[in-house]
Design a protein around this nucleic acid. Structure first.
Lengths: 122, 122
DNA sequence: ATTGTCCTCAACTCATTGGTTGAATACAAC
DNA sequence: GTTGTATTCAACCAATGAGTTGAGGACAAT
């Protein structure tokens, strides 16, 4: 089980929680302390601290140390593996669909040409 | 809490599992029955059935009914909300970064021009 | 040095999840 | 109708996850 696999596990899992997605959205505007991040939510401060930790372990954010504050910063590049993974298979399925579609179009044309003759099996 | 939020929850959570990502990758090649999907894995058949159910509830796959088989089919469009969500905030952070960068560049130039005079506050 | 602020760590609860096995269902084929 | 095949459902278990509260650590300010 490769490391990139585990990294994808963690990144996708991190974004599966609405609170954590909210935190990411907030951080896209500016860096923020845990206190600032917690403010809009109706849960304990510590719960938000945990959420930030999950995001950090997924590599999606980093924390620097400024006196007693730990400003949280969005790690933009860390989102790429997810979109790349999704887009890869989405595109593959899309291409298969187009091939199938083309095949069906050809078959439909064949229907007009030959199929009536072939239906005489009954 | 909107429905789209819950849908994102489920979609991201569904992709957070390597087995389920493997199933999606397999389905990008062609539709498959649960039995075919289970074959490469070293877990029980029922476990894979459950995984497929999770993918289905996330809207990422659909199952049709062909006799006793339930061929599983990838629902390509269902992946878009995820990439759109990620790209939205990724892009927002990117723009902020560029603005900050430009600001820093200006400030650096100001340093050369005016800053020495302004430092006379002490 | 004491106090207040910002934050993390530890221990606990409760719900969810991924896995198991053992039925039960649905259909084809004989 | 019996058998075989493909699949789901139900009950259970162990591990993980999101939440809580209570304590402790690091630093600034007085």
């Amino acid at each position: 089980m490769g490391d990139s696999t585990q990294q994808l596990d963690r990144a996708f899992a991190a974004l599966a929680d609405p609170t954590r997605r909210g935190i990411v959205a907030r951080l896209s505007v500016s860096d923020a302390t845990v206190g600032e991040l917690a403010e809009p939510y109706d849960v304990s401060f510590q719960a938000i601290s945990k959420h930030v930790k999950v995001l950090e372990e997924a590599g999606l954010v980093t924390r620097s140390k400024d006196a007693q504050r730990r400003p949280v910063h969005l790690n933009r590049e860390a989102f790429d593996p997810m979109t790349e993974w999704i887009e890869r298979y989405r595109r593959e399925a899309e291409e298969r669909y187009r091939r199938l579609d083309a095949l069906l179009a050809r078959t439909a044309q064949d229907d007009g040409d030959r199929r009536p003759a072939e239906e005489q099996e009954s």
